[in-house]
Simulated scan of single mutants.
Amino acid sequence: MSDAQERAFDELADRFVIEVPRAAAATSVHADARFDPASVYGRTAPLIVEIGSGQGHAIISAARSRPGDDFLAVEVFRAGLARTMLDADREGLRNLRLVEANAPEVLETLLPEGSADEVWVFFPDPWHKNKHTKRRLVKPPFAETAARALRDGGVLRFATDWEDYALQMREVMDAAPAFERDFAGEWAPRFGGRALTAFERKGAARGRDIRDLAYRRRPRA
């Protein structure tokens, strides 16, 4: 990380980063770890969780424009978390927190069941080489863990610029019994709450179509 990013952890982590008890790995979540949104944010409000928040451009924009909602950025790369903290501090945001942890473990363990109003997965690593596609995040087990974290009626949103990954996402989610489509036609309209980032512009400039999907959590039995 740069010197500024190192300073971000030294000076801002106490304000923004949620300390997570670990299991074996540095980004793991201990099975007994729990996150209490009301205690962390000091209020009860809708909670939006972004998985793989990168440098934080999307979630910073959303937190700034939706002060009545609370936001949780989940990321494993410290440089991205540092950049997010620097921008959040510059914006004076009070409704954003960060977790340095593996996303599935956050959804499975750390978040209380039914606590998230929305979960966002924007431009996850496509692992586009055939030998690497097994590493993709969005597979049937992911649908199950996301269903646990979302409240009834909550929304799981996706965006990707890789067509075959978009098709995989749709196949996985269409088959997930806990979810139903929240769109008509082949693809969801572009989510207006997603900031247009340099990453998205870059994909579009290379001729890759941006595809959105949105799925609503069915009521629990």
Rank of each mutant, 00 (worst) to 15 (best):
D69S: 13
V74A: 01
A63P: 09
A116T: 00
F191R: 14
G68M: 04
R151A: 11
A79Y: 05
F9T: 04
G56K: 06
A146C: 07
H30P: 03
A159G: 09
K202Q: 13
W127I: 10
A4N: 06
N102P: 07
M85C: 06
L213F: 10
S28K: 00
N102I: 03
A45N: 09
G42C: 05
L167M: 09
H128V: 01
N95H: 09
T133N: 10
D32K: 07
P126W: 13
R190T: 06
N130M: 10
I210E: 11
A166V: 07
D117I: 00
G207C: 15
P67N: 04
A221W: 06
D164M: 12
D14W: 01
L72M: 04
P37Y: 00
R22S: 02
F16W: 05
M1Q: 11
L81E: 02
L107N: 01
A23F: 02
P219L: 00
P124N: 09
A195K: 15
R190F: 04
S28T: 01
H57R: 14
T133K: 13
Q55F: 13
L107G: 00
G207M: 14
Q55K: 14
I210L: 15
G185N: 10
T160P: 08
T197K: 08
D14M: 03
A166I: 05
P37N: 02
F183W: 07
D174C: 10
A26N: 11
S2Y: 04
A205Q: 13
G92C: 06
R170Y: 08
W127D: 09
E113K: 10
A88W: 12
R206Q: 15
F183P: 14
E186F: 08
D3E: 15
T84N: 03
P141Y: 02
F71S: 07
N130R: 14
Q55H: 14
R190L: 07
P112K: 11
I18R: 03
E171G: 15
T197P: 03
E200N: 09
D69R: 12
T133L: 07
A175L: 05
A79N: 13
A4C: 01
P177Q: 06
F183Y: 14
R7F: 11
L137A: 05
E113H: 07
H30I: 00
A184T: 15
A31C: 02
A13D: 05
H30F: 02
G42L: 08
F191H: 15
A184E: 15
G52T: 03
G193Y: 10
S53Q: 08
F199P: 05
R170A: 14
F142I: 08
L196M: 11
A23N: 03
V106L: 01
